[in-house]
Design a protein around this nucleic acid. Structure first.
Lengths: 339, 339
DNA sequence: TATTAACACGAAACCGTTTTCGTGATGCAT
DNA sequence: ATGCATCACGAAAACGGTTTCGTGTTAATA
């Protein structure tokens, strides 16, 4: 086992001072050509690499960014992470991922763990429990300490920081309007409780599209599940209870599952009943029929979030001016609706 | 903005030395009751939290573990990460995720970045390019430096370290045998080139099951794709070229896609043709019909890997005895085969 | 020859902890 | 009064770097 070599080792071996070695490796003007060559050759030979921790301690920059998300086994979050990772890596940053698993306590613990010097900034999406409680003190504390935070997708207006979201209202509006244009009359919405910021916005888009049309809103055609967790029973009951010819779902799982229910009843998709979901994941692509979705562009969202965060981390002046980027959703047309 | 408070700040404020503060906060016997109370109260009031970086530098432990995987938008890896994250977090570790994106170079760069003090150990699954090249020097360097490594799923025998895999050979064997028991005669395999350790093992299991039966192996019934990337054309061509009544696929995407091809030809699943895939993801669960799969128990794999790594990191003696844990795969029966 | 600038390097502080060791003060026994 | 523990605390080194500033040597200049 060859242990890592340090500046001190090089200095001792070459009989110069640590400072000389440090400067020589940085090609400082101060050091003579001779010494520099000697030091650099020696360093290369023994594969010297500076210790990241020591550097972090010195310049109070870790080059790590903390990502706190509710769940990783969810296609949307996965793509966001990928976007963050790609962008951050390109700028020399590493990504520390923490999962809150939709729990407020875990979110708090994770943030506290990372806030003590481990990271330069946070990118996060709130857990459902946090959004439900409306308690954002952990975020406040962190921002007050001057640690930059970027909130994405599941955000709150109570915290002053950069934010990245897609226009969920618009996404749902576009989807619903599509149904209307295709002559659908009984358009349902399967969503979750309003405390989830995204669900609330989507519901609003659905309502706006219907109100702009002759159809109007029928409350009984809206199913609000308590969470994003799959709840087969409630969906089945809802789907069985009425005649529908179009269903908008707040995620792809709900959509694919309800498609199957419809098929079991002998309905033809999209002729008898059409479906649109949110999240452009594998499921939508490979479902049968393939599912039309509102794409949230997770990877893009990740990149944008990472850019905003790193720009802030690296900016000297602490700018008290935060922005909210709103990404446009797009409809990815597949076989679950008419082309 | 309230800046973080340090030991030095407390010391200055309370007019004691830094060492006294440090000891007082650790409830050292050395310090008088009075002083301890004073210091602890002050620390609490100003919400003192020790700086992780400084501690890392001091005791050469970061409490971070590096996870390097080829891809994150893949259900299996996602579940592994979740397993790692849960276990590691419970033991006070954070997880730094790096994606190699199946590239050898990125794998190397990521490892080098992390190996300079940022982490206490690695958990990784090799990129396909690395397995193809057979170049493992980056792993050798790291292990020679005394940094513990745990390899999972995509492993190599050229490196001495702990490993966690599932018995891929057995999984494919079980699946193929299932087909045979159900009277299937023309059993195909859609897999990838043998350089991927998992594909090779799965192919061997498939072959063993067939050889043990009366059927024997028919090379033309095996499709070897160049990588795990989806290649619709090749699969379509393969499926069209012959009469099959069962297909084993090396992942769930290939399986779901070929199911759809079969359905388009008017075949009934599972009566005319049955399917089994690897990876128990969302796709399998919500496909139509739902897909029978060989479950790799990713989350378990993640937990086991994390446990092995952390145990090694925390063990004083550097044990030169490495183990390979082989997890048993299980068949998750769904509607793509007879129940 | 005396002055001075340039050169090449080292000493030391610093980042925020932990930990070892030393020491002044106190109290007790002799 | 003297010796000796014990107590309560501080000084300083260490982790591995970066950076400022000081300094001895040499060579050029007056």
């Amino acid at each position: 086992m060859k242990a890592k070599i340090t500046l001190k080792d090089i200095a001792r071996e070459l009989e110069v001072s640590i400072s000389t070695v440090s400067k020589a490796l940085k090609n400082s003007e101060e050091i003579s050509r001779d010494t520099k060559e000697k030091v650099q050759a020696f360093a290369k030979l023994y594969n010297y690499k500076p210790n990241n921790i020591a550097i972090s301690l010195k310049n109070k920059r870790t080059k790590n960014i903390g990502v706190v998300i509710p769940d990783i086994v969810h296609h949307f979050f996965t793509t966001v992470i990928r976007g963050i990772e790609k962008y951050a890596n390109a700028r020399g940053y590493n990504v520390i991922v923490c999962l809150s698993e939709e729990s407020f306590d875990k979110e708090v613990i994770n943030m506290e763990m990372l806030a003590n010097g481990s990271i330069d900034g946070f990118i996060m999406s709130l857990s459902s429990e946090t959004q439900q409680k409306g308690d954002f003190n952990h975020l406040k504390e962190v921002t007050e300490q001057g640690i930059p935070v970027v909130l994405f997708d599941r955000i709150t207006n109570e915290i002053d920081c950069d934010k990245v979201i897609i226009d969920d209202e618009l996404g749902a509006y576009m989807a619903t309007k599509k149904f209307i244009e295709q002559g659908k009359k009984n358009i349902a919405l399967i969503t979750t409780d309003d405390y989830l910021s995204v669900s609330k916005a989507r519901t609003m888009g659905y309502i706006r599209a219907l109100e702009e049309s002759d159809l109007g809103v029928d409350e009984s055609k809206v199913l609000k599940l308590p969470s994003m967790e799959m709840d087969e029973k409630s969906i089945k009951k809802f789907m069985d209870s009425q005649e529908l010819d179009a269903v908008l779902c707040v995620n792809e799982i709900f959509a694919v599952y309800s498609m199957r229910l419809a098929q079991q009843k002998g309905l033809k998709i999209p002729e008898d009943i059409s479906f649109i979901g949110f999240t452009d994941g594998l499921l939508s692509k490979y479902a049968n029929p393939s599912l039309t979705v509102v794409s949230q562009h997770g990877e893009r969202m990740g990149e944008v979030s990472a850019k905003m965060l790193i720009d802030q981390v690296e900016s000297e002046e602490e700018e008290e001016t935060y922005q909210t980027k709103i990404l446009e959703p797009t409809l990815v047309i597949r076989d679950s609706i008419f082309h």
